[in-house]
Each structure stands twice: as structure tokens, then as C-alpha cells.
Simulated scan of single mutants.
Amino acid sequence: MTLRIGIAGISGRMGRLLQEEVAAAGGTLSGGIGRDGDAAALFAGSDAVIDFTNASTAERHAGLAAEHGKALILGSSGLSAAQETAVMAAAKHVPIVYAANFAPGVNLLFALAERMGAALPPEQYDAEIVEMHHRQKVDAPSGTAIGLGRAVARGRGRTLEEVGMESGRDGHTGARATGPIGFAALRGGQVVGEHTLLFAAGSEQIALTHRSFDRRVYATGAVRAAQWAAGQPAGLYDMKHVLGMG
């Protein structure tokens, strides 16, 4: 049976790319909604729904996925703690792939970030993350940047909330503290997405950079995630599971 995939946010740039990628992957587009639309009907008529809208709809869409027993691929960034809690609650009933980024290369970068965080102690290596996106992006730091920070912190045996974030430095801030992870967000033009993770010590510096040149890589990854999730038991997954790294 052909997988029926619905798209929340179908009228945006990502929505148009997702339509093309659903067809390219041999799936069936079951429908889509824009800013307004019957989300309940979309979930009822789909096997999986891909949601690249915004944080404000994440809780409702996760709830509808659980209510209708359908897989959800969630790519919205900037979710609050309460919204993430709602997504986790829904994942007890249906498979949800919630990822900061659906590009395979970025998810390999997450894996490297965790390993490097474990190998490079914070007392000797300061971790800094620099990201740049198009001028229309509304949240900062980006979800991918925060994902990198979480990976580094996880490698160091802690959470990002525990190690702390330093961002928006301005004026006489004093010396850099030991332990927190630094974030810098740049916005301008139509940059699809650039992320650099730096580990800086007194005697060396290591930098890992990923650049996205085409948003299609996110659409291709999201459709791949939908195909994978439709056959999984209930649970909260991310792209490392889809790529076989989890």
C-alpha cells in the first residue's frame, strides 16, 4: 500500500519542495494545509504528516497525531519546554520524529559533536557555535545550533540547561566563563543555513562546519523520515534513528 503523506505548511517554500519529494519517493500526497485549514481532517486522511510550520502549532498537531493514531514528522524549531513536553506525551501513543534538522550531514555533525564533547573537556576547550540564516528566520539561536549545543553537553555528561548558554554578548562582559557553550546568530540575505562548531583551547582550535545550499535536502530527509516512521512503534525519535545511527 502506498504511504499517504500529508503536509502541514504546504503553501510555503518547504511545502512545495515536500510535494515534489513525496512524489519522487513514490508516496501519495494525501492533502495539505496552510495557515488555515482543517488539521484534523489532514491527520485523519494520512498515514503520516510532515509539519514544518511553527512552534505555535506543534502541541495541537502532536495531539491530533495521537488522537488519530498517525505518525508525525515535526521540523518546527523554537519549541518551548511546555510544547516539547506535549510532543513527548503524544509520542507515548504514536511514532514522532522530532528533529532540529533533517539533512543527513547535519545529523552526522551532531554525532561528531557528542563524541568531541566527550573527548575535549570544558576546562581546556571552550565550545562555541556560530550559525547564519536568511533574514526571514524568526528564532535564534536556530534549532540546529541548539541541537549541536545539546550534543556537546551530552558528550560531557550533562544537559545544555546544566552547562548553560552564553549568547548575545555585548559590552564589558568580563572573561569567558568555563563550561557554558557560546552561541552567535547571524541573519542576512537568503542564506539557507550555515553552522560552525568550534572547540578552542590555548594551544589548538578545531572547527566543524556544515553548509546547506538547497532547502530540498530538508524535504528529502523529512520524506525519508515519514517512510521510516510509518512502520515504527510509538516513541519519540530523531534523525539518527532514521539514519540507523540510534
Rank of each mutant, 00 (worst) to 15 (best):
M1Q: 07
L3A: 08
R4Y: 08
L18G: 02
Q19F: 11
Q19A: 06
V22L: 09
A24P: 05
G27M: 04
G27Y: 03
I33H: 07
D36V: 11
A39L: 10
A40I: 15
A41F: 11
G45W: 10
G45C: 10
A48D: 00
V49K: 04
I50G: 13
D51Y: 03
F52E: 02
N54T: 01
N54G: 09
T57W: 14
E59Q: 10
R60Q: 12
H61K: 08
H61F: 11
A66I: 12
K70W: 04
G75E: 01
L79M: 15
T85R: 05
T85Y: 05
V87N: 01
V87A: 05
A90N: 11
V94P: 10
V94D: 10
V97Q: 01
V97R: 01
A99E: 05
A100T: 04
A103D: 07
G105A: 08
V106N: 01
L108Q: 13
L108W: 13
L109R: 04
F110P: 12
E114G: 12
E114D: 09
G117R: 00
A118P: 09
P122E: 15
Y125R: 04
A127R: 06
V130I: 03
E131Y: 08
K137V: 13
V138C: 11
V138K: 13
A140S: 14
P141N: 12
S142M: 01
G149D: 03
V152H: 03
R154W: 14
R154A: 15
R156S: 07
R158K: 15
R158P: 11
T159W: 09
E162G: 14
V163Q: 06
G164I: 02
G164V: 00
M165D: 03
E166W: 14
E166G: 13
D170F: 09
A175L: 06
R176H: 14
G179N: 12
P180E: 13
I181M: 08
L186V: 08
Q190W: 08
G193R: 03
G193Y: 00
E194G: 07
A201E: 10
A201P: 02
E204L: 08
E204C: 09
E204Y: 08
R211I: 11
F213E: 11
R216C: 10
A219L: 07
V223Q: 04
V223P: 06
R224Y: 05
A226L: 09
A230G: 04
A230H: 01
A230E: 00
G231F: 15
Q232E: 05
G235H: 06
Y237S: 03
Y237A: 04
D238I: 00
K240P: 07
K240N: 11
G244Y: 03
